[in-house]
Amino acid sequence: MQDEAALAINKNERPTARRQRAWNPRLLILLIPPIIWLSIFLFAPYAVLFINSFWKVDFGSIVHEFTWGNYTKFFTNSLYYGTFLKTLKIAAWVTVFSILLSYPLAYFINFKIKKNKQLFYTLVIIPLWVSYLVRAYAWKIVLGQDGILNNVLLAVGLIDHPMEIFLYSQYAVVLALTHIYTPWVLMSIYTSLEHIPRDVLEASKDLGAGRFRTFFRVVLPLSLPGLIAGATFAFVLTMGDFLAPQLLGGTSSMMVSNVVYSLFGVANNWPLGSTIGILTLFVVLGILQLTHRLEHRTTSFEAGTRGR
């Protein structure tokens, strides 16, 4: 009974303590530098982008006249909304493959490896030390017409002439991006698996659940926050990627960033580029908001300290 009373006090304490936290003038002064920093480097550029998206373009030069035209163009021209949907699709595939690759590996390193756990973890992380460009080019060497894959297949006799579809296709883009983002997803999942106390798994077995039921009822739910964070990472970073499609994708697998890149460059249509940039930004923000909520809802540890 006594501890119930103690709990009741605790429960009341937290919200009141938060409500009473008054605005401290010194705190405000401390906040000024980061506010200025954020304004100059984050809010101002987005504001410029946002404003730009409403200007007109006349024969390659910007006319400062308000229009919804850029937005209508985006939603009516399949080149633009189609590319956007394709980007979402590629991002979704990259996310799915990254999870499929990294979850079992993270599980294995965390639960099955007893010695040299750190070594295995580091081995997985090492690709991150290699430049993105090098990794993307490496795939060119593997997938190219005179690449390793074609040569192996020719030698084995599975094909009689080099295949072109390996490179310059959506598959190549998905493959390379999966390779590039898998370590990130793995790190995130690994961390959440690491936080699961071993005796919770033992408790599950003790109560009659075998390995599989323990996994689906205890391990997976408890690792969801890490899984969601990793998936968000892979998805959002793929959304904004333009090097992989540029190097490995060919014209058919242009992604949003490539379109924006060409609108700001060759096409010299900054307003439309800004429009696509702003729309991408909102979609990404929406995804982040959604996953943040999901992550929060699935977080079981340190409840109360992490939540807002």
Binding site: E202, A203, K205, D206, A209
Partner: peptide, 28 residues
Amino acid sequence: PPYKRDVNTVFQSYALFPHMTVYDNIAY
């Protein structure tokens, strides 16, 4: 294996399932 023994354990750290309610923990 432990899940086939008619023996149950109360752990030192309690090892409650943090993502389940009290009810679900007990019903497990």
